[in-house]
């Protein structure tokens, strides 16, 4: 038997696309000895196992797209899987107990800081001139967020560029208008230009207030980028996973599993 023949049969076997002739040939080969038979069976199960993990990872991604966080506990397959994880319980419990990042604190307030104006230099005559951009960012720099919102809204409606949406989101955040802030950050994300990663950070922060499941994919991405807010994202990720255990009915091992899948 050629290795290439076996590779080709195995690939079709893993994809469940064996033709009748291929299935017969594979059965013949497997009947020749237990070593090959067990190898193929193990690797087939591995392919299915990876697909199972991928399904869960994709489900989390889609829930984040829908902004409709939902516990995996509704998934029968996940529950069945969780039942088999007793071995992990001890180490996970140690992980859970050994860290107290964010516990008992208002995490959003702890991590929230307004993003500084990095895009417009303010001239001395900003208060008097007609340049609406100057007015918007002068107000923003002065902490006059209500005036900044009014000017930034005009700017964003005239010119649909990420920086206006991003700083409008910032101004809404400062005014504690969370839903409006979220909408602006989402606009930046959809456009996909400047301030995309920063917007993801603020969206993640907003989600940590009530929906840690939805924050997790954003935080994982930020942490993985090893750049802007990566360290804070790691910390918040820990916090969110613990929140799932504390308040969302996840077991410790389910939360750990989620972290491993997304990393």
């Amino acid at each position: 038997m050629e290795q290439s023949e076996l590779d080709s049969l195995q690939k079709a076997y893993l994809q469940d696309t064996l033709t009748e002739a291929q299935a017969q040939r594979l059965a013949q080969l497997r009947a020749q000895g237990p070593v090959l038979d067990e190898k193929l069976a193990f690797e087939y199960d591995l392919g299915k196992a990876i697909a199972l993990n991928e399904r869960k990872r994709l489900k989390v991604k889609l829930e984040a797209l829908e902004e409709r966080p939902k516990s995996w506990r509704e998934s029968k397959s996940f529950l069945a899987m969780a039942a088999s994880l007793a071995l992990l319980l001890l180490t996970s419990l140690l992980w859970y107990l050994s860290s107290n990042v964010g516990a008992g604190r208002d995490t959003f307030e702890q991590y929230y800081e307004a993003y500084p104006n990095t895009v417009v230099s303010i001239s001395r005559s900003a208060d008097t001139n007609d340049d609406i951009e100057q007015i918007a960012f002068a107000a923003y720099d002065a902490g006059d967020y209500s005036r900044a919102i009014s000017a930034l809204k005009k700017l964003a409606s005239r010119s649909d560029v990420p920086k206006y949406h991003f700083f409008l989101g910032q101004a809404y955040l400062a005014e504690k208008e969370y839903s409006a802030a979220y909408g602006q950050f989402k606009s930046v994300m959809v456009q996909g230009g400047d301030f995309t990663l920063e917007s993801k950070w603020y969206i993640a922060l907003l989600f940590t207030r009530e929906s840690p499941e939805a924050a997790i994919p954003y935080l994982t991405e930020i942490a993985r980028n090893k750049g802007y807010k990566a360290h804070e994202a790691e910390e918040l990720l820990d916090f969110c996973l613990k929140e799932l255990v504390r308040n969302k009915g996840y077991s410790v091992e389910e939360a750990e599993e989620l972290r491993n899948l997304l990393e």
Partner: peptide
């Protein structure tokens, strides 16, 4: 998924 596939899925994630 079979029991072995579920355990494999967990071990794979680790």
């Amino acid at each position: 998924p079979t029991e072995r596939q579920r355990i494999l899925a967990h071990q794979f994630a680790l």
